[in-house]
Design a protein around this nucleic acid. Structure first.
Lengths: 205, 205
DNA sequence: AAAATACACTAACAATTGTTAGGCAAAAAG
DNA sequence: CTTTTTGCCTAACAATTGTTAGTGTATTTT
């Protein structure tokens, strides 16, 4: 017979949100803030408002949290790429659209996108190789678009993989925009970035 | 009376290299590969060829390793900025020079630069705030150069902090160039990057 | 050659880690 | 209301962590 003094209550959920989703959300915040390895399950439990052991009623392991976050993001991007490839618009517009998708992902789903971008190293096989493959082919598809642009003379002659690398990492730099004190608003940021990045690609006339 | 069976011998050093420097070098490799938190002192000891405890004859703590790496890199960049500000050359050339310095740092001192870029979060105060300040003022000085360029109409009208963010993060993307199988050579990479980045900044004529 | 220093070793520590077991209470289902 | 299920709790585990103490052997200095 055991008496509970400081009973903490259940994890609060809005309707349409499972407790697991709440945990994943908080995990993303925490992993972003401290890094996957430095964030402990006890930390996570605190921010969720529960004891560490209780988390395991909803999830299987810490690593599950990471791979859910990573693949959620990766799949969203892959899906967007599918749609984009099917569209019949000028290449330079395709590129712009893709960049805008990346930028707004980084602005509005910051925690998840950032974690998937920086912490995927800590995935365990077979998820690790899976993730790496998905990422690699995504970049190849992106590079293929740029190369098509070069053939059609819409895009300046550049090394396509290098261009992809620049674009994607430039966008991941939005991280420091989030961190900065006096930040311009999200829409301005987007336009500035597009101007520089797309401007750097267009054939100069 | 104790007899040593598998005596591993001392840490090998070239002349002009202290054992501490060897350890720091290996630490940079390890921190880059696994991340600061995931890299254990026993891992480090293994790659150095020694027992974990022996490392402490040369260093004070794990965190010392991180802050030596971070500040070595940060100071190099700060120093370069000092030199550059003093030069009397067109702004667009200044920017190009700075970018080239960053690029070749990322190509030739990859491990240290990468670690200082990605793992500084794990610095402990007061080093953490120090580092953040140094980084912030560096970026402000970079932004000031771009703003001067805009005033002199050498540079397209863009939000300067955003431009800095793009440049620096684009360069840190060289990480994935290192990782990639079929990589173009370092010099080509540099020229490609300069073309896109500086191209994106110049006033279009 | 003797003395001093540098540097490696083994053994052990306290703290923190992810995770499991088992029990009780609230919420949902009957 | 009664039963079942869900979800929280405490307690504890084994593993891994950074680090210190103490000891012995190479190497360097005298």
């Amino acid at each position: 017979m055991l008496v509970y003094f400081c009973f903490m209550g259940r994890i609060k959920t809005d309707s349409n949100t499972t407790r697991k989703e709440v945990i994943i959300r908080k995990a993303a915040e925490l992993f972003r803030e401290k890094g996957y390895k430095a964030a402990s399950m006890r930390d996570l439990a605190d921010t969720v408002g529960v004891e560490a052991a209780s988390l395991y009623n909803h999830i299987h392991s810490k690593s599950e949290l990471l791979h859910i976050i990573c693949f959620d993001v990766a799949n969203r991007f892959t899906q967007k790429m599918d749609e984009l490839e099917a569209e019949k618009i000028p290449i330079i517009q395709k590129i712009e659209k893709l960049l805008r998708f990346h930028i707004s992902g980084m602005v509005h789903h910051f925690e998840e996108v950032y974690v998937s971008d920086r912490e995927w190293k800590h995935l365990a096989d077979p998820y690790l190789s899976n993730y790496q493959n998905q990422r690699r082919t995504y970049r190849k598809r992106f590079a293929a678009i740029i190369e098509e642009g070069i053939r059609k003379k819409e895009v300046k002659k550049v090394d396509a993989p290098t261009a992809v690398l620049i674009m994607l990492h430039a966008i991941s730099g939005i991280e420091s925009w989030h961190r900065s004190k006096q930040k311009i608003n999200g829409k301005e940021l987007e336009e500035s970035m597009i101007a520089i990045l797309v401007g750097g690609l267009k054939t100069s006339r």
